[in-house]
Design a protein around this nucleic acid. Structure first.
Lengths: 235, 235
DNA sequence: TATGTGTTAATTGTTAACAGTGTAAAGTAT
DNA sequence: ATACTTTACACTGTTAACAATTAACACATA
Protein backbone atom coordinates (compact mmCIF):
# COMPACT_ATOMS: atom_id res chain seq x y z
CA UNK A 1 0.00 0.00 0.00
CA UNK A 2 1.37 3.34 -1.03
CA UNK A 3 2.21 6.27 1.12
CA UNK A 4 -0.59 8.39 -0.19
CA UNK A 5 -3.22 5.88 0.76
CA UNK A 6 -1.67 5.58 4.19
CA UNK A 7 -2.07 9.26 4.66
CA UNK A 8 -5.61 9.12 3.40
CA UNK A 9 -6.65 6.48 5.90
CA UNK A 10 -4.76 7.98 8.79
CA UNK A 11 -5.49 11.59 8.03
CA UNK A 12 -3.30 13.20 10.59
CA UNK A 13 0.15 11.97 11.30
CA UNK A 14 0.93 11.83 14.97
CA UNK A 15 2.82 14.87 16.07
CA UNK A 16 6.11 14.89 17.85
CA UNK A 17 5.58 15.21 21.59
CA UNK A 18 8.40 17.67 21.84
CA UNK A 19 7.08 20.50 19.71
CA UNK A 20 3.48 19.50 19.11
CA UNK A 21 3.54 19.95 15.38
CA UNK A 22 0.70 18.45 13.43
CA UNK A 23 0.29 18.09 9.72
CA UNK A 24 -2.86 17.19 7.88
CA UNK A 25 -1.84 15.43 4.76
CA UNK A 26 -5.37 14.55 3.79
CA UNK A 27 -6.33 18.14 3.21
CA UNK A 28 -4.15 18.41 0.15
CA UNK A 29 -3.37 14.89 -0.93
CA UNK A 30 -6.83 13.65 -1.71
CA UNK A 31 -8.83 14.56 -4.77
CA UNK A 32 -12.01 16.27 -3.73
CA UNK A 33 -15.25 14.37 -4.08
CA UNK A 34 -17.23 17.28 -5.47
CA UNK A 35 -15.69 17.04 -8.91
CA UNK A 36 -13.07 19.67 -7.98
CA UNK A 37 -9.69 18.15 -8.68
CA UNK A 38 -7.50 19.51 -5.91
CA UNK A 39 -3.89 19.45 -6.88
CA UNK A 40 -2.00 16.44 -5.68
CA UNK A 41 1.12 17.35 -3.80
CA UNK A 42 4.01 14.96 -3.46
CA UNK A 43 5.00 13.64 -0.06
CA UNK A 44 8.33 15.38 -0.30
CA UNK A 45 6.75 18.73 -1.03
CA UNK A 46 4.39 18.35 1.90
CA UNK A 47 7.26 17.58 4.25
CA UNK A 48 9.22 20.52 2.88
CA UNK A 49 6.24 22.76 3.37
CA UNK A 50 5.73 21.66 6.97
CA UNK A 51 9.39 22.23 7.75
CA UNK A 52 9.36 25.63 6.09
CA UNK A 53 6.39 26.55 8.26
CA UNK A 54 8.19 25.44 11.39
CA UNK A 55 11.18 27.58 10.51
CA UNK A 56 9.23 30.65 9.44
CA UNK A 57 7.04 30.45 12.53
CA UNK A 58 10.05 30.14 14.76
CA UNK A 59 8.98 26.77 16.15
CA UNK A 60 12.32 25.61 14.87
CA UNK A 61 14.72 28.24 16.15
CA UNK A 62 17.96 29.16 14.40
CA UNK A 63 20.80 26.72 15.05
CA UNK A 64 18.40 23.95 16.00
CA UNK A 65 19.94 20.71 14.85
CA UNK A 66 17.72 18.41 12.79
CA UNK A 67 17.74 14.66 13.20
CA UNK A 68 16.85 12.66 10.10
CA UNK A 69 15.54 9.70 12.04
CA UNK A 70 13.33 11.85 14.25
CA UNK A 71 11.92 13.73 11.27
CA UNK A 72 11.23 10.48 9.46
CA UNK A 73 9.27 9.24 12.45
CA UNK A 74 7.36 12.47 12.78
CA UNK A 75 6.15 12.35 9.19
CA UNK A 76 5.71 8.62 9.09
CA UNK A 77 8.15 8.05 6.25
CA UNK A 78 11.65 6.70 5.94
CA UNK A 79 14.81 8.76 5.99
CA UNK A 80 15.06 8.90 2.22
CA UNK A 81 12.43 11.54 1.51
CA UNK A 82 13.49 13.42 4.62
CA UNK A 83 17.03 13.65 3.33
CA UNK A 84 15.69 14.93 0.01
CA UNK A 85 13.82 17.68 1.80
CA UNK A 86 16.83 18.61 3.91
CA UNK A 87 18.88 18.95 0.75
CA UNK A 88 16.20 21.13 -0.80
CA UNK A 89 15.85 23.44 2.19
CA UNK A 90 19.59 23.69 2.43
CA UNK A 91 19.73 24.92 -1.14
CA UNK A 92 16.95 27.35 -0.32
CA UNK A 93 19.03 28.71 2.52
CA UNK A 94 16.73 27.79 5.40
CA UNK A 95 19.12 25.09 6.62
CA UNK A 96 22.85 24.71 6.73
CA UNK A 97 24.40 21.30 6.29
CA UNK A 98 27.79 19.86 7.08
CA UNK A 99 29.01 16.59 5.60
CA UNK A 100 28.74 13.66 7.95
CA UNK A 101 27.58 15.90 10.75
CA UNK A 102 24.10 17.06 9.92
CA UNK A 103 21.96 20.06 9.25
CA UNK A 104 20.57 22.84 11.38
CA UNK A 105 18.35 25.86 11.01
CA UNK A 106 20.11 28.84 9.51
CA UNK A 107 20.34 32.23 11.21
CA UNK A 108 18.35 35.27 10.10
CA UNK A 109 20.01 37.54 7.58
CA UNK A 110 22.24 40.34 8.76
CA UNK A 111 20.81 43.83 8.22
CA UNK A 112 23.23 44.35 5.34
CA UNK A 113 22.15 41.17 3.65
CA UNK A 114 18.53 41.98 4.29
CA UNK A 115 18.98 45.31 2.54
CA UNK A 116 20.63 43.67 -0.44
CA UNK A 117 17.91 41.05 -0.62
CA UNK A 118 15.27 43.75 -0.77
CA UNK A 119 17.07 45.45 -3.63
CA UNK A 120 17.42 42.20 -5.54
CA UNK A 121 13.81 41.25 -4.95
CA UNK A 122 12.65 44.58 -6.30
CA UNK A 123 14.70 44.15 -9.44
CA UNK A 124 13.38 40.64 -9.98
CA UNK A 125 9.73 41.45 -9.37
CA UNK A 126 9.89 44.56 -11.51
CA UNK A 127 11.29 42.40 -14.26
CA UNK A 128 8.45 39.95 -13.81
CA UNK A 129 5.95 42.80 -13.95
CA UNK A 130 7.39 44.02 -17.22
CA UNK A 131 7.11 40.57 -18.74
CA UNK A 132 3.54 39.88 -17.69
CA UNK A 133 1.99 43.33 -17.93
CA UNK A 134 0.74 42.89 -21.48
CA UNK A 135 -0.38 39.29 -21.26
CA UNK A 136 -1.86 38.70 -17.82
CA UNK A 137 -5.41 37.35 -18.06
CA UNK A 138 -8.52 38.13 -16.06
CA UNK A 139 -8.41 34.68 -14.55
CA UNK A 140 -4.88 35.24 -13.33
CA UNK A 141 -5.83 38.60 -11.86
CA UNK A 142 -8.71 36.94 -10.05
CA UNK A 143 -6.37 34.38 -8.60
CA UNK A 144 -4.16 37.13 -7.22
CA UNK A 145 -7.22 38.78 -5.71
CA UNK A 146 -8.27 35.54 -4.09
CA UNK A 147 -4.88 35.37 -2.44
CA UNK A 148 -5.39 38.87 -1.03
CA UNK A 149 -8.73 37.78 0.39
CA UNK A 150 -7.05 34.77 1.91
CA UNK A 151 -4.43 37.01 3.51
CA UNK A 152 -7.15 39.12 5.05
CA UNK A 153 -8.83 36.07 6.54
CA UNK A 154 -5.59 34.69 7.88
CA UNK A 155 -4.78 38.01 9.47
CA UNK A 156 -8.16 38.08 11.22
CA UNK A 157 -7.61 34.51 12.40
CA UNK A 158 -4.19 35.40 13.73
CA UNK A 159 -2.50 32.75 11.59
CA UNK A 160 0.65 34.65 10.94
CA UNK A 161 2.73 31.81 9.58
CA UNK A 162 0.12 30.94 6.97
CA UNK A 163 -0.27 34.64 6.28
CA UNK A 164 3.41 34.96 5.55
CA UNK A 165 3.26 31.94 3.28
CA UNK A 166 0.29 33.35 1.40
CA UNK A 167 2.10 36.64 1.01
CA UNK A 168 4.96 34.71 -0.53
CA UNK A 169 2.52 32.76 -2.70
CA UNK A 170 1.06 36.01 -4.03
CA UNK A 171 4.41 37.29 -5.19
CA UNK A 172 5.50 33.86 -6.34
CA UNK A 173 2.47 33.62 -8.58
CA UNK A 174 3.26 36.66 -10.62
CA UNK A 175 7.00 36.09 -10.57
CA UNK A 176 6.37 32.74 -12.21
CA UNK A 177 3.87 34.28 -14.61
CA UNK A 178 6.47 36.79 -15.72
CA UNK A 179 9.63 34.75 -15.65
CA UNK A 180 8.71 31.10 -15.35
CA UNK A 181 10.65 28.52 -13.40
CA UNK A 182 13.97 30.13 -14.26
CA UNK A 183 13.08 33.35 -12.53
CA UNK A 184 11.40 31.57 -9.64
CA UNK A 185 14.56 29.62 -9.09
CA UNK A 186 16.65 32.68 -8.33
CA UNK A 187 13.82 34.57 -6.65
CA UNK A 188 12.79 31.95 -4.16
CA UNK A 189 16.00 31.55 -2.11
CA UNK A 190 16.13 35.30 -1.69
CA UNK A 191 12.57 35.63 -0.46
CA UNK A 192 12.31 32.58 1.75
CA UNK A 193 15.42 33.56 3.64
CA UNK A 194 14.20 37.13 4.09
CA UNK A 195 11.05 35.80 5.69
CA UNK A 196 12.99 34.19 8.51
CA UNK A 197 13.13 37.67 9.95
CA UNK A 198 9.69 39.16 10.30
CA UNK A 199 7.36 36.78 12.02
CA UNK A 200 4.35 39.01 12.40
CA UNK A 201 2.58 41.56 10.34
CA UNK A 202 0.93 44.36 12.23
CA UNK A 203 -1.26 46.23 9.83
CA UNK A 204 -3.96 44.43 7.88
CA UNK A 205 -5.17 47.44 5.89
CA UNK A 206 -1.72 48.21 4.60
CA UNK A 207 -1.22 44.58 3.71
CA UNK A 208 -4.38 44.50 1.65
CA UNK A 209 -3.96 47.94 0.10
CA UNK A 210 -0.41 47.36 -1.03
CA UNK A 211 -1.24 44.11 -2.73
CA UNK A 212 -4.42 45.49 -4.25
CA UNK A 213 -2.37 48.31 -5.75
CA UNK A 214 -0.19 45.74 -7.46
CA UNK A 215 -3.15 43.86 -8.91
CA UNK A 216 -4.82 47.06 -10.05
CA UNK A 217 -1.68 48.18 -11.81
CA UNK A 218 -1.47 44.82 -13.53
CA UNK A 219 -5.10 45.07 -14.59
CA UNK A 220 -4.57 48.56 -15.98
CA UNK A 221 -1.47 47.24 -17.77
CA UNK A 222 0.37 50.17 -16.23
CA UNK A 223 3.98 49.12 -15.83
CA UNK A 224 5.10 52.28 -14.05
CA UNK A 225 2.32 51.98 -11.50
CA UNK A 226 3.14 48.31 -11.03
CA UNK A 227 6.77 49.09 -10.32
CA UNK A 228 5.77 51.74 -7.84
CA UNK A 229 3.34 49.43 -6.06
CA UNK A 230 5.89 46.63 -5.92
CA UNK A 231 8.59 48.92 -4.57
CA UNK A 232 6.26 50.14 -1.88
CA UNK A 233 5.33 46.64 -0.82
CA UNK A 234 8.79 45.10 -0.69
CA UNK A 235 10.64 46.11 2.44
CA UNK B 1 35.52 -1.45 2.09
CA UNK B 2 34.53 2.16 1.76
CA UNK B 3 33.84 4.09 -1.35
CA UNK B 4 36.82 6.32 -1.02
CA UNK B 5 39.22 3.42 -0.83
CA UNK B 6 37.57 1.94 -3.88
CA UNK B 7 38.21 5.14 -5.73
CA UNK B 8 41.73 5.33 -4.42
CA UNK B 9 42.63 1.84 -5.57
CA UNK B 10 40.77 2.06 -8.84
CA UNK B 11 41.62 5.64 -9.58
CA UNK B 12 39.51 6.12 -12.61
CA UNK B 13 35.94 5.02 -12.79
CA UNK B 14 35.06 3.41 -16.07
CA UNK B 15 33.41 5.87 -18.35
CA UNK B 16 30.11 5.47 -20.07
CA UNK B 17 30.59 4.12 -23.55
CA UNK B 18 28.05 6.52 -24.91
CA UNK B 19 29.68 9.83 -24.13
CA UNK B 20 33.17 8.82 -23.02
CA UNK B 21 33.22 10.82 -19.85
CA UNK B 22 35.93 10.02 -17.37
CA UNK B 23 36.43 11.25 -13.86
CA UNK B 24 39.57 10.98 -11.82
CA UNK B 25 38.50 10.75 -8.24
CA UNK B 26 41.97 10.05 -6.96
CA UNK B 27 43.23 13.47 -7.91
CA UNK B 28 41.23 15.19 -5.23
CA UNK B 29 40.29 12.51 -2.75
CA UNK B 30 43.72 11.52 -1.54
CA UNK B 31 45.69 13.48 1.00
CA UNK B 32 49.05 14.48 -0.36
CA UNK B 33 52.11 12.81 1.12
CA UNK B 34 54.24 15.92 1.18
CA UNK B 35 52.56 17.40 4.24
CA UNK B 36 50.08 19.28 2.10
CA UNK B 37 46.56 18.39 3.24
CA UNK B 38 44.52 18.41 0.05
CA UNK B 39 40.89 18.94 0.79
CA UNK B 40 38.76 15.83 0.82
CA UNK B 41 35.69 16.16 -1.35
CA UNK B 42 32.60 14.09 -0.78
CA UNK B 43 31.48 11.60 -3.37
CA UNK B 44 28.29 13.57 -3.91
CA UNK B 45 30.16 16.79 -4.56
CA UNK B 46 32.43 15.04 -7.04
CA UNK B 47 29.48 13.66 -8.93
CA UNK B 48 27.80 17.07 -8.91
CA UNK B 49 30.98 18.63 -10.20
CA UNK B 50 31.30 16.13 -13.02
CA UNK B 51 27.72 16.66 -14.06
CA UNK B 52 28.08 20.44 -13.93
CA UNK B 53 31.08 20.12 -16.22
CA UNK B 54 29.13 18.01 -18.65
CA UNK B 55 26.37 20.58 -18.80
CA UNK B 56 28.61 23.63 -19.01
CA UNK B 57 30.71 21.99 -21.71
CA UNK B 58 27.67 21.06 -23.71
CA UNK B 59 28.40 17.33 -23.56
CA UNK B 60 24.98 17.13 -21.99
CA UNK B 61 22.84 19.22 -24.29
CA UNK B 62 19.70 21.05 -23.15
CA UNK B 63 16.64 18.82 -22.82
CA UNK B 64 18.78 15.70 -22.51
CA UNK B 65 16.98 13.37 -20.18
CA UNK B 66 19.00 11.92 -17.31
CA UNK B 67 18.63 8.35 -16.18
CA UNK B 68 19.39 7.72 -12.52
CA UNK B 69 20.38 4.11 -13.07
CA UNK B 70 22.76 4.98 -15.89
CA UNK B 71 24.38 7.75 -13.88
CA UNK B 72 24.77 5.46 -10.89
CA UNK B 73 26.56 2.95 -13.09
CA UNK B 74 28.77 5.57 -14.63
CA UNK B 75 30.01 6.80 -11.26
CA UNK B 76 30.09 3.39 -9.66
CA UNK B 77 27.64 4.25 -6.90
CA UNK B 78 24.02 3.47 -6.19
CA UNK B 79 21.07 5.62 -7.14
CA UNK B 80 20.88 7.29 -3.73
CA UNK B 81 23.76 9.74 -4.08
CA UNK B 82 22.86 10.30 -7.71
CA UNK B 83 19.38 11.36 -6.70
CA UNK B 84 20.89 13.75 -4.17
CA UNK B 85 22.97 15.35 -6.88
CA UNK B 86 20.04 15.62 -9.25
CA UNK B 87 18.07 17.41 -6.55
CA UNK B 88 20.97 19.77 -5.96
CA UNK B 89 21.48 20.62 -9.61
CA UNK B 90 17.76 21.09 -10.02
CA UNK B 91 17.80 23.68 -7.27
CA UNK B 92 20.77 25.30 -8.95
CA UNK B 93 18.78 25.57 -12.15
CA UNK B 94 20.93 23.35 -14.33
CA UNK B 95 18.32 20.61 -14.41
CA UNK B 96 14.55 20.57 -14.43
CA UNK B 97 12.71 17.77 -12.69
CA UNK B 98 9.18 16.45 -12.93
CA UNK B 99 7.68 14.20 -10.30
CA UNK B 100 7.62 10.54 -11.26
CA UNK B 101 9.00 11.32 -14.67
CA UNK B 102 12.58 12.41 -14.27
CA UNK B 103 14.99 15.24 -14.83
CA UNK B 104 16.58 16.76 -17.87
CA UNK B 105 19.07 19.46 -18.73
CA UNK B 106 17.60 22.94 -18.60
CA UNK B 107 17.64 25.34 -21.54
CA UNK B 108 19.91 28.37 -21.74
CA UNK B 109 18.50 31.61 -20.40
CA UNK B 110 16.50 33.85 -22.68
CA UNK B 111 18.25 37.13 -23.58
CA UNK B 112 15.94 39.00 -21.21
CA UNK B 113 16.75 36.71 -18.33
CA UNK B 114 20.42 36.86 -19.18
CA UNK B 115 20.31 40.62 -18.96
CA UNK B 116 18.57 40.53 -15.62
CA UNK B 117 21.05 37.97 -14.32
CA UNK B 118 23.93 40.24 -15.24
CA UNK B 119 22.35 43.12 -13.36
CA UNK B 120 21.73 40.98 -10.30
CA UNK B 121 25.24 39.55 -10.37
CA UNK B 122 26.71 43.02 -10.48
CA UNK B 123 24.69 44.10 -7.48
CA UNK B 124 25.71 41.02 -5.51
CA UNK B 125 29.39 41.16 -6.33
CA UNK B 126 29.57 44.88 -5.66
CA UNK B 127 28.02 44.19 -2.29
CA UNK B 128 30.63 41.52 -1.63
CA UNK B 129 33.38 43.93 -2.62
CA UNK B 130 32.12 46.50 -0.17
CA UNK B 131 32.11 43.98 2.63
CA UNK B 132 35.57 42.60 2.04
CA UNK B 133 37.42 45.67 0.88
CA UNK B 134 38.70 46.62 4.34
CA UNK B 135 39.49 43.17 5.62
CA UNK B 136 40.84 41.09 2.76
CA UNK B 137 44.25 39.61 3.60
CA UNK B 138 47.40 39.21 1.53
CA UNK B 139 46.94 35.48 1.56
CA UNK B 140 43.46 35.81 0.15
CA UNK B 141 44.67 38.16 -2.55
CA UNK B 142 47.35 35.66 -3.44
CA UNK B 143 44.77 32.95 -3.77
CA UNK B 144 42.82 35.10 -6.21
CA UNK B 145 45.99 35.70 -8.19
CA UNK B 146 46.71 31.99 -8.30
CA UNK B 147 43.28 31.47 -9.83
CA UNK B 148 44.09 34.01 -12.52
CA UNK B 149 47.29 32.14 -13.30
CA UNK B 150 45.33 28.93 -13.51
CA UNK B 151 42.90 30.56 -15.93
CA UNK B 152 45.78 31.59 -18.14
CA UNK B 153 47.15 28.07 -18.20
CA UNK B 154 43.76 26.55 -18.93
CA UNK B 155 43.23 28.98 -21.77
CA UNK B 156 46.58 28.01 -23.30
CA UNK B 157 45.70 24.34 -22.92
CA UNK B 158 42.35 24.93 -24.59
CA UNK B 159 40.47 23.55 -21.60
CA UNK B 160 37.51 25.83 -21.86
CA UNK B 161 35.20 24.01 -19.52
CA UNK B 162 37.75 24.05 -16.71
CA UNK B 163 38.49 27.65 -17.59
CA UNK B 164 34.87 28.59 -17.13
CA UNK B 165 34.77 26.76 -13.82
CA UNK B 166 37.89 28.53 -12.62
CA UNK B 167 36.40 31.84 -13.66
CA UNK B 168 33.39 30.99 -11.53
CA UNK B 169 35.68 29.89 -8.69
CA UNK B 170 37.44 33.26 -8.78
CA UNK B 171 34.26 35.21 -8.31
CA UNK B 172 32.87 32.64 -5.89
CA UNK B 173 35.90 33.07 -3.69
CA UNK B 174 35.43 36.74 -3.09
CA UNK B 175 31.65 36.55 -2.98
CA UNK B 176 32.00 34.12 -0.11
CA UNK B 177 34.67 36.27 1.52
CA UNK B 178 32.35 39.25 1.45
CA UNK B 179 29.02 37.65 2.16
CA UNK B 180 29.59 34.12 3.40
CA UNK B 181 27.39 31.16 2.63
CA UNK B 182 24.25 33.27 2.66
CA UNK B 183 25.40 35.41 -0.20
CA UNK B 184 26.85 32.47 -2.07
CA UNK B 185 23.52 30.75 -1.85
CA UNK B 186 21.71 33.39 -3.85
CA UNK B 187 24.66 34.17 -6.11
CA UNK B 188 25.39 30.67 -7.27
CA UNK B 189 22.13 29.76 -9.03
CA UNK B 190 22.33 33.00 -10.97
CA UNK B 191 25.87 32.48 -12.13
CA UNK B 192 25.81 28.78 -12.91
CA UNK B 193 22.78 29.20 -15.09
CA UNK B 194 24.34 32.13 -16.94
CA UNK B 195 27.29 29.99 -17.80
CA UNK B 196 25.17 27.55 -19.74
CA UNK B 197 25.31 30.13 -22.49
CA UNK B 198 28.87 31.04 -23.37
CA UNK B 199 30.94 27.95 -23.90
CA UNK B 200 34.14 29.53 -25.10
CA UNK B 201 36.21 32.50 -24.19
CA UNK B 202 38.05 34.12 -27.03
CA UNK B 203 40.44 36.61 -25.55
CA UNK B 204 43.02 35.53 -22.98
CA UNK B 205 44.51 38.98 -22.38
CA UNK B 206 41.17 40.51 -21.60
CA UNK B 207 40.37 37.63 -19.30
CA UNK B 208 43.56 38.12 -17.32
CA UNK B 209 43.46 41.91 -17.32
CA UNK B 210 39.90 42.17 -16.15
CA UNK B 211 40.46 39.84 -13.23
CA UNK B 212 43.75 41.43 -12.35
CA UNK B 213 42.01 44.79 -12.18
CA UNK B 214 39.65 43.37 -9.61
CA UNK B 215 42.43 41.98 -7.45
CA UNK B 216 44.40 45.20 -7.69
CA UNK B 217 41.42 47.23 -6.62
CA UNK B 218 40.94 44.91 -3.67
CA UNK B 219 44.58 45.23 -2.72
CA UNK B 220 44.40 49.02 -2.91
CA UNK B 221 41.24 48.83 -0.80
CA UNK B 222 39.64 51.03 -3.44
CA UNK B 223 35.94 50.24 -3.45
CA UNK B 224 35.07 52.46 -6.39
CA UNK B 225 37.77 50.92 -8.55
CA UNK B 226 36.61 47.46 -7.49
CA UNK B 227 33.06 48.21 -8.54
CA UNK B 228 34.26 49.50 -11.86
CA UNK B 229 36.43 46.47 -12.48
CA UNK B 230 33.63 44.09 -11.53
CA UNK B 231 31.13 45.88 -13.75
CA UNK B 232 33.51 45.67 -16.64
CA UNK B 233 34.12 41.97 -16.15
CA UNK B 234 30.53 40.84 -15.72
CA UNK B 235 28.71 40.64 -19.02
C1' DT C 1 47.37 19.24 34.72
C1' DA C 2 47.73 18.91 29.94
C1' DT C 3 48.00 16.20 25.93
C1' DG C 4 47.24 12.54 23.07
C1' DT C 5 45.09 7.96 22.04
C1' DG C 6 41.63 4.19 21.92
C1' DT C 7 36.66 3.22 22.46
C1' DT C 8 31.89 3.76 22.03
C1' DA C 9 27.33 5.46 20.91
C1' DA C 10 24.82 8.29 17.93
C1' DT C 11 24.25 10.00 13.42
C1' DT C 12 24.84 10.45 8.60
C1' DG C 13 25.99 8.06 4.07
C1' DT C 14 25.06 4.22 0.95
C1' DT C 15 23.03 0.27 -0.86
C1' DA C 16 19.74 -3.00 -2.97
C1' DA C 17 15.20 -4.61 -3.06
C1' DC C 18 10.57 -3.43 -3.54
C1' DA C 19 6.49 -0.39 -4.70
C1' DG C 20 4.17 2.87 -7.50
C1' DT C 21 3.79 5.69 -11.67
C1' DG C 22 3.92 7.25 -16.48
C1' DT C 23 4.66 6.18 -21.31
C1' DA C 24 4.22 4.07 -25.43
C1' DA C 25 3.25 0.10 -28.02
C1' DA C 26 -0.21 -3.38 -29.02
C1' DG C 27 -4.72 -4.52 -29.23
C1' DT C 28 -9.87 -3.55 -29.73
C1' DA C 29 -13.98 -1.37 -31.23
C1' DT C 30 -16.33 2.04 -33.95
C1' DA D 1 -8.23 4.55 -40.56
C1' DT D 2 -9.31 6.79 -35.93
C1' DA D 3 -10.15 6.84 -31.29
C1' DC D 4 -10.12 4.52 -27.13
C1' DT D 5 -8.31 0.51 -23.78
C1' DT D 6 -5.22 -2.46 -22.20
C1' DT D 7 -0.93 -4.03 -21.05
C1' DA D 8 4.01 -4.30 -20.54
C1' DC D 9 8.02 -2.14 -19.33
C1' DA D 10 11.13 1.24 -17.91
C1' DC D 11 11.68 4.50 -14.69
C1' DT D 12 11.23 7.09 -10.40
C1' DG D 13 9.85 6.89 -5.29
C1' DT D 14 10.41 4.58 -0.91
C1' DT D 15 12.07 1.55 2.39
C1' DA D 16 15.05 -0.84 5.75
C1' DA D 17 19.41 -2.78 6.50
C1' DC D 18 24.20 -1.95 6.46
C1' DA D 19 28.64 0.94 6.27
C1' DA D 20 31.32 4.86 7.47
C1' DT D 21 32.05 8.88 10.10
C1' DT D 22 31.82 11.91 13.90
C1' DA D 23 32.00 13.69 18.58
C1' DA D 24 32.31 12.65 23.27
C1' DC D 25 34.21 10.16 26.77
C1' DA D 26 37.47 7.32 29.26
C1' DC D 27 41.99 6.23 29.73
C1' DA D 28 46.91 6.39 29.47
C1' DT D 29 51.09 9.10 29.26
C1' DA D 30 54.32 12.58 30.31
Amino acid sequence: MGRFLDFASDGKIQSLAENKLTIDFRKQAIVGLGMRAKKIISVREQIADALRSDIISGDLAPNTKLNEHQLAERFGVSRGPVRDVILKLTKEGLLVSKDNVGSSVNSPLTPDMQKLSIALRKKIEEFAAKQLIDTITDQELEHLESLITKMEELFEAGEFTELTKTDIAFHQYYVELGGGDSLLNIWYPIVIRMRMNYHRIKNADKLVDEHTDIVNAFRARDYKAAVEAIRKNIK
